[in-house]
Design a binder for these strands. Sequence first.
DNA 1: TTGAAAGCGGTACCAT
DNA 2: ATGGTACCGCTTTCAA
Lengths: 340, 340
Amino acid sequence: MSQTPELPVERSVPTSADVARLAGVSRATVSYVLNNTASVRISEATRLRVRAAAEELGYVPHAAARSLRAGRTRTVLLPTAHLPLGPLPGPFSDEFQRALRRLDYTVVQYGSLGLEGDEAARAWAELRPVAVVCLGDAEPTAHGVEVLKRSGARAVVTLGPHIVEGAHALVMDQRAVGGCAAAHLIRRGRRAVGVVVPEEAALRPTAGARLEGAFAAADGTGARIVPLTMAYEEESAAVLAARWRALGLDGVYAYDDEYAMLLMRALQDEGVDIPGETAVIGAGDLLLGRLLRPRLSTVSIDLVSGRRLAELVDRVVREPATRPERHELMAVGPVQRESS
Amino acid sequence: MSQTPELPVERSVPTSADVARLAGVSRATVSYVLNNTASVRISEATRLRVRAAAEELGYVPHAAARSLRAGRTRTVLLPTAHLPLGPLPGPFSDEFQRALRRLDYTVVQYGSLGLEGDEAARAWAELRPVAVVCLGDAEPTAHGVEVLKRSGARAVVTLGPHIVEGAHALVMDQRAVGGCAAAHLIRRGRRAVGVVVPEEAALRPTAGARLEGAFAAADGTGARIVPLTMAYEEESAAVLAARWRALGLDGVYAYDDEYAMLLMRALQDEGVDIPGETAVIGAGDLLLGRLLRPRLSTVSIDLVSGRRLAELVDRVVREPATRPERHELMAVGPVQRESS
DNA sequence: TTGAAAGCGGTACCAT
DNA sequence: ATGGTACCGCTTTCAA
């Protein structure tokens, strides 16, 4: 408190009025210049004065004031329950964000960790996003969608497994993943197929859909599906592996590659031959799956490009009359390696 | 710009004035009731009427209007270049966010993908966050910090490797990670230690700091450090492995566990004995590292709890006079397994 | 070419 | 116990 020359610490934040004063013009002029408003012609001299003043003051426009006045935002909200975006690969979200930014949206990710259902939707609605894109975890309820729409959201898009009533759904059907995995195992002659369902709560929606898909794939083939719960921990995998032979399974789809790698190692430690005794398949086609021996079979999940999803969002925003559609955003296919 | 195609469906978003009208009270009263303003006493009957009206209309307050009036937000901005949060483990960020929410902040992650340096800082400043916490990637420049402060940010916290001038820095020194890894290898008798530097641009800051730490650890020990670039792809690892013997290294610290697993497999395929011929160590203590054989040695990175970091942020926000400090937020330690 | 002024949706002070 | 009202910072008619 005594050494530095008393900086007026609480110097107030510069507003467009400050810029106007310094440049000797009106606030309106400042707005015109800084926004390059095409419908108004401002002399070059004035433009320079305004720009210089803004620069000197370190003026940054106030987004809240701007959107309050405009009556709408360009905010696209991505709610996330779990931080590393649920079941989506990194490159996809990167591309998605870039594309949205190029379309002049402000992409904001809102961590909804402590919030439940409708409470979360309310919190999102307070920000008046023009669109809400739910990437897998953090699904909105039907009522939540209603709240968002009422608050001005022109597009509520869900990539989750279910169609949420009222949402302009772009459905990414996780059932296809489970179906593909189970079908692959059955095609290769397995008749008793375990399906790992992670205990982690955040993965439940995805896991449930994948399991559902596995059941559907087994339907009418004579093969049976056995759900198995497991946590992402070595011990949990070991416990499951210990009772493996009692289960009498000859194949297992282990939710995703990480769970599959974990389980496969536990089974090997238990002396289970893979794929002889039990075939193993994961999902996601992680690079690391190729490092184990035997190499891990997997289900590759190709998403539509982030760019295309961004364009879809943009279209719905501009024409909210668009009927909720069901776009297929995901292409899945089995990748057979050595574990199946 | 003509963009409102007069949709009849465009029922306007309910405001507190609508609620007031429906409840037959003034806007002030609505505000008092909905915010439970302690300094004002409202009759129970009125409260009920207001609440019912708000409910019926599906009223959600407008965050922008509120913070415009308040003159400040409770927004904590987490800029992220890469979407799944940079080099931080998931549980940490989860906890951090939860804790901030409990302290009544609104946590918003802002994807800064297409933005460069000062441009990014400007974009963040438009949101008038009360605090900005940079979690590793997306470091602000000194000028960026200045812009943020001027725009009203009370705390600019960086967890990156460098102290940014003006930022209330809580430094997470990634150099310690590299130092720990290198020291471990040297302690175990290795004299020529490779350090993998990922080619991925997003990892550069972290990787650079870790490399720097490795150099420092080798200093004066007679051991030498050899930087090696590698991309996160099987082929890149194979290329590196192919010229391994020519490099004459007897140890390698491979940035993190994922790179380490990739490289280790490539080396094994090349016939390099691990750890006999070359010791390998990663960082991050991933579960998957234990699944390979030999089991991967690693550097465990324990962060201060997210809760504590949240409390630090809160303190700086409430007492911005707090001198920029250098907190040690990270505790690292070697975890020796079989690969070293 | 520029300025004055009316709001956007809330909040909080001051009356009543 | 409530209502009236003046703002917050910015955009955008409408006039000059």
